[in-house]
Every structure is written in C-alpha cells, then in structure tokens.
C-alpha cells in the first residue's frame, strides 16, 4: 500500500503550470526545496513511470506527455467541488478503497474525503462478492460522508450515487447510461458500474457513510472473467475509444458534490425524481431474487425510501428493499 509520491506530484505541478516553457533544474530545486541532484533523480523516476519529459542542459525540463495515472495532484487541481474531494488520497494498490475510507471514518476524518486506487486486490461487492479491479484501466473511488439526516433516510444516498455516476458517464462520453434498481449502471443492458454503500450508524444518527464506486473505463472485453453474474461492458468497449480516467473522475466528483448539496437544500423528493428519470427498471417485467423466494412482476414505482414497488398480481403489489433484479424484457 504505497501512497503516491508527493515530490513527484510537486514536480509535475510545476511543469504543468509552465505550459510549453522549459523549467530549469534550479527553479525546480528552489520551488520544491530539494537539491538539483534530487530533482534529476525524481525526473528519472517519473520517466520510468511513463511521463515523457524532455531536458536540455541549458534550458531545463519540459513535460510532453502524462501517462494515464491517477495522481493526487492532477486530480485536486482540476476539481471544482465544495465538499467532496477537499481531501483526496491516491494509492497504487489497496485491498479495498471502501475499507480504507471506513477506517478513516472510524478515525474521525472529515466528510468529503475521497480514496482512490489504481488497483484493488479485494474490490468489494455486495455480501462478500468481488469487484474485478485490474490495474491502470478503471476507476475505484470511495467517498466518506457524514450526513445529518437519520439512517432511515440513508438509502437516498444510494440513489444520489447512482444518479451521479450515470450523469458523469453521459456527460463525459455521451453514452446513454441508465440505472437498474437499485444502483447498477448499465449501458445497452450491460453493467458498466457498481456502487456499494457502507454505513456506520446508531438508531437515530449516522456516524459515517462510505459510497464506493467502481467504473469499468478502459478495460478490454477479453479481460472480463467468464463467470460474471450479468453481462458487463466498459466505457471503451461501448464507445470504441479510450476514456480519460481523470476527466471522468472530476466529472463524477463534481456531479456527486452538487447532488449532495442539492439533497441538503431541496430534500429527497428532487433526488427521487432524477433517479426515476434515469431508471431503466420502471414499467418493465422483472424477476427479483429475495432471500428465500423469487418474485416476478412489473416494476411500477419506487417509494421515497427507494424501495421498488412490484405488481405481482391483480391488485397486489409488493415493496422490495433488497435483492437481485433481472429485467425480463
């Protein structure tokens, strides 16, 4: 578990800010407070990680190309948010970004913290399932929040998260991303993103919530395992070209931030409306696997708590709050 090197990030920031001009080794050394020899060493390190940096003895260094690397500094610079993303930590590899964010929550970290990893060894799904998390291609993001409403209303955060992910994908790629109840994100009926929210609460008070988002961004078709629970895709597979992970991440965090703000100002109803608009499950025939039973029917509506209202017979509806949904048409 290695945190991305801060000096590397500072060097990249200075080089990026100078745009097309060269920056001398002395300037870098002064700005960052390390020796010129150390600057040279770090530049070598960055080159080995895929940065293309040209240098001439008389003029200094110039950044030509940035690899697709989730650097904390790049992320913070481009972000315009009020709460979410005020603090961002980036890891090369973790067991699970949700686990780290939950630990930070338990330690009293402020809300808005974002934990990002380039790869996960044990990406978490619901009930001990795994989220496939290879290196360098996808987004694995966990957000720590401390909402002030009671736990009973916390499921609105799941809606908020799925609305934000669908919106960010549509904005960045133009693809028609839809929500499958309660919070899978689909493109052409194939799963492109999963969300797992974990909460620590008392009866009347939420201590903290972690919203974990996994998005298949540039993963290739052949890299998906064969035994997935449902058809999956990545943005690249659906779009036919690579997608900039950092740009998608900015858009996601900004969307999440403005929806979180909206939730506080306007309440649940506005979020439910937005969720309905993006949901592809409503008015469809569905099969739902519940613990110990399977029901089929037409998904008619959702309740304010986010429950799915399923018509299972003449004049007979059932409200469902958990379970695996399969669309039948």
């Amino acid at each position: 578990m290695k945190q991305t090197n801060q000096i590397d990030d500072l060097i990249i920031t200075v080089l990026k800010n100078s745009k097309d001009a060269f920056v001398s080794g002395q300037t870098l050394s002064n700005r960052i407070g390390i020796t010129r020899a150390a600057v040279w060493k770090h530049i070598e390190g960055l080159r080995s990680e895929g940065y293309i940096i040209v240098s001439t003895p008389s003029r200094g260094y110039k950044l030509i190309e940035t690899p697709d690397r989730l650097s904390a500094v790049g992320i913070k610079q481009g972000i315009k948010t009020r709460v979410i993303g005020k603090e961002i930590v980036v890891f090369d590899e973790v067991n699970s970004t949700n686990d780290i964010a939950m630990e930070k929550g338990a330690q009293g970290e402020k809300e808005g913290l974002v934990v990002i990893a380039d790869s996960q060894l044990h990406g978490k799904g619901r009930l001990g399932r795994t989220w496939i998390s290879p290196k360098g291609v996808n987004l694995y993001v966990s957000i720590l929040l401390r909402p002030e409403f009671p736990p009973l209303q916390a499921s609105v955060l799941t809606m908020m998260a799925s609305v934000s992910v669908a919106t960010a994908i549509s904005k960045t790629t133009g693809l028609d991303a839809r929500i499958k109840w309660p919070n899978d994100i689909l493109i052409d009926q194939k799963k492109v993103s999963g969300i797992l929210t974990e909460m620590n609460a008392e009866e009347e008070r939420i201590h903290y919530v972690v919203i974990g988002v996994g998005i298949n961004v540039n993963m290739k078709k052949e890299d998906f395992p064969g035994d997935l629970r449902m058809p999956a895709t990545s943005l690249m597979e659906s779009l036919g070209r690579r997608v900039d992970r950092t740009e998608l991440l900015y858009t996601l965090l900004e969307s999440m931030d403005s929806n979180y703000e909206g939730l506080k100002m306007k309440g649940i109803v506005s979020m439910v409306q937005e969720w309905r608009r993006l949901c592809s499950t409503l008015h469809k025939r569905v099969r739902i696997s519940l613990p110990g039973e399977v029901i089929t029917g037409v998904a008619e509506d959702i309740t304010q708590e986010g429950g799915l209202v399923v018509r299972i017979g003449e004049g007979l509806t059932k409200k469902v709050y958990a379970g695996d949904v399969t669309l039948l048409e």
Partner: peptide, 9 residues
C-alpha cells in the same frame, strides 16, 4: 441492507 446500502450495526 437496504438498496445495497450495507448498514453495520
């Protein structure tokens, strides 16, 4: 659990 929100009690 409600709507994939796993609530640790």
């Amino acid at each position: 659990e409600a709507m994939k929100l796993m609530n640790e009690i």
